[in-house]
Design a protein around this nucleic acid. Structure first.
Lengths: 172, 172
DNA sequence: TTTGAAATCCGTAATAG
DNA sequence: CTATTACGGATTTCAAA
C-alpha cells in the first residue's frame, strides 16, 4: 500500500509542508542533495500522488470568513440519502471538511462563514437537504490550532501494528 | 479591520490557493498584470498577514496517518485548566485542529493517527491532562471533503465598480 | 545521483502612466 | 501610487553520464 518513501523523502515533505515555495536548491542543502535530485524526487512523489498539490495559506478573516463552526449532521438511515447530501457539500465552498463518521452522528462538518447570519443560512440549506433530520452546531469562540500539515513521524516502513480495521473507540 | 483587498488581489489569492507554486508570470497572465506587479501585490499581502505562508498538500496515507477522528473534549470549568491543555494540544503534531467552542463541549479536535491503536494512545494522553473530564470520539469512516482553501466569495473591502468585471460579488 | 546547460523566472531598479 | 520595462542573478527543467 505504501509507496517507497525513504527518510530523505520524508525530510523533503517536511520542508515542503513548512514552506511550499522552497527552492529545490535550498531543500537540497538541507537534506544533502543537489537541486535536480530534489526535483526528481518531488516529481516522482507528485506522480505517485504522495504530493497532492501546493496551496497558499490565507487568513480567513481577510476574506471575511472569520467564523468557524463544527456541525454534526444526522441523516436518515437509507442508502440513497447520502448522494444528494454529499454532492451539495462538495459544491459549497464554505464547507471545508465533511467526515462520514461512525457513532451517533452521520457526518461532521467544518464550515467557515462570515457571520452567524451566514451560518444560519448555511444550516438552513443543510436542513433542506432530503434525509437530513438534525444538525447540531458548535461555534468556535477561538481556534486554538489549525494546521494542514500531516505529522511526519518517521520512516513508514516499520509495521508496529496493523490490527484490524476501524472499530469504534469506546471512550467516555 | 479588513485590509484593502481588491478584486485583483482576490483573483491572485484564488490562484495561489489552487496552485501555491504558480509563477508570478502565469498568475499575471491570468489576472491581466505583469510578473513584477503580481510580485508586489503578493509581497504586500504577505506583509499584511493576508498570506500566511505556503504548504504542500500531502496524502496522509503515504505518511501512515490515514485515520481521522473528531474528538469532543469536556474540560472542568476553571480558568487555569485551559493552559496546560492548550499547550499539550499545540505540541502534538497529530492534533491538527483544536477549536474552543461554545455549547456543551469545551473543545473539538481533529486528530490524525496511524490506527485505532494510536488513536487510543492519544486519547489516553488527553484524558491524562488535568481538567479533562470527558472525551467523545467519532472516527471518520470516510472523509468526503477536506480542503484548506478558504472560500473566496467576492470583494471584501467594498469595491465600487470600475467598469465591468468578470465575476460578480455574491453575498453568502 | 550528479554535472552541465538552456529556458524560464525572480526580484530589483528605474521609468512611465 | 501602482504598473511596466529592463536586466542581472537565481531557479527550474531536461539532458547526458
Amino acid at each position: 500500500m505504501n509507496d517507497q518513501v525513504d527518510e530523505t523523502d520524508l525530510a523533503i515533505l517536511r520542508l515542503l509542508q513548512t514552506d511550499g515555495r522552497a527552492t529545490h536548491a535550498a531543500i537540497g542543502k538541507a537534506v544533502g542533495l543537489t537541486g535536480p535530485s530534489v526535483y526528481a524526487r518531488i516529481k516522482r512523489m507528485e506522480r505517485d500522488g504522495i504530493i497532492r498539490g501546493y496551496t497558499a495559506l490565507i487568513d480567513p478573516a481577510a476574506l471575511d470568513q472569520g467564523l468557524v463552526a463544527i456541525v454534526r449532521v444526522s441523516l436518515k438511515a437509507s442508502a440513497d440519502e447520502q448522494e444528494p447530501f454529499e454532492s451539495i457539500i462538495g459544491a459549497d465552498p464554505q464547507v471545508l471538511e465533511c467526515h462520514d463518521v461512525d457513532g451517533e452522528d452521520s457526518y461532521i462538518l467544518k464550515v467557515r462563514t462570515a457571520s452567524p447570519q451566514t451560518l444560519r443560512r448555511l444550516l438552513a440549506d443543510l436542513r433542506g437537504v432530503p434525509g437530513v433530520t438534525r444538525t447540531v452546531s458548535s461555534i468556535a469562540l477561538e481556534t486554538v490550532k489549525d494546521v494542514t500539515a500531516t505529522a511526519v513521524l518517521g520512516p513508514v516502513a516499520e509495521a508496529r501494528d496493523s490490527g484490524r480495521t476501524a472499530e469504534p473507540a469506546e471512550d467516555r
